[in-house]
Simulated scan of single mutants.
Amino acid sequence: MMTFSGIGDLLAHQNAFPESGWIFVEKSFDTTSEKDIREGRFCIAQDDDEEFDLEETHCTWLEAPMFRAIVGERLEKNPAAPLGELIAAAIHYLDKDTFMP
């Protein structure tokens, strides 16, 4: 299992993500909290057994490929997007099921 401490760590390792699968968060994670996204623990399963275990103990946040798409789309619009803007883009996608304008 891959684990990441905060969205900065997640962003730094996004090229190592599997082609499919979920990014998991702890059940107490608030998906609309900038603080939780900045500082929370993210997990990605590396095989089916790990994914099954994570589904039992964690909640899903975003699919790994969708996270990369959200970040990529935001950076296309603003190549110098600060971390807060990337967090806002993820929250917007979770809330509206569409990319942030």
Rank of each mutant, 00 (worst) to 15 (best):
P65I: 09
Y93E: 07
A81D: 00
T32N: 14
P79E: 03
D53R: 15
E73N: 14
F52G: 03
D95G: 06
I44H: 02
D47I: 04
I44D: 02
C59R: 13
Q46L: 12
A64W: 05
P101I: 00
D36V: 10
L62P: 00
L83M: 13
C59Y: 09
W61S: 00
I44L: 15
E73D: 10
G84Y: 02
I87T: 02
I37H: 13
S33R: 05
T60I: 11
G84Q: 10
L54I: 00
E55T: 10
F99Y: 14
E51V: 02
F52V: 12
L94M: 14
L54A: 11
A80K: 15
F42K: 06
T32Q: 14
M100G: 11
S33K: 08
I44K: 07
G84K: 10
A81N: 06
Q46Y: 04
R38D: 00
I37K: 09
N78C: 09
S33M: 12
E56D: 06
P82D: 03
K77P: 03
I44T: 04
F67R: 06
N78Q: 13
E73C: 09
W61R: 06
C59A: 11
F42S: 06
T60E: 08
P65C: 03
E39G: 06
E51L: 08
R74F: 10
V71S: 03
M66R: 10
D49A: 14
D97M: 08
Q46E: 13
E56C: 08
R38K: 15
F52S: 07
A45I: 05
P82Y: 04
V71C: 11
E55H: 15
T98P: 06
A88C: 09
D95F: 10
G84T: 13
P65T: 04
L75I: 01
S33Y: 06
H58W: 04
E51S: 11
R74N: 05
F99H: 08
I87A: 05
E51A: 04
N78P: 02
I37P: 01
L62A: 01
W61Q: 02
W61C: 04
P82C: 09
E55V: 04
P101N: 10
D36P: 03
G84R: 12
K35I: 11
P101A: 09
T57E: 15
L54Y: 14
A89M: 11
M100P: 07
D49W: 08
L62V: 12
C59W: 13
I91F: 14
I70H: 02
W61P: 10
N78Y: 02
C59T: 11
Y93Q: 06
P79G: 02
M66V: 13
P82R: 14
A88K: 14
D53M: 12
E39L: 15
E51P: 01
R68D: 11
R74E: 15
F99G: 05
E56G: 11
I91N: 12
L54F: 15
C43H: 10
P82K: 15
D53A: 15
W61E: 01
Y93F: 14
N78H: 08
A90N: 10
A45V: 07
F42A: 02
I70G: 00
R38H: 10
Y93L: 09
A89T: 03
K96I: 06
T32P: 01
L62F: 03
R68K: 13
I37G: 07
I87P: 05
W61A: 01
L75A: 04
A64M: 08
M100A: 11
F52T: 08
F52D: 00
C59L: 12
G84M: 12
D48C: 06
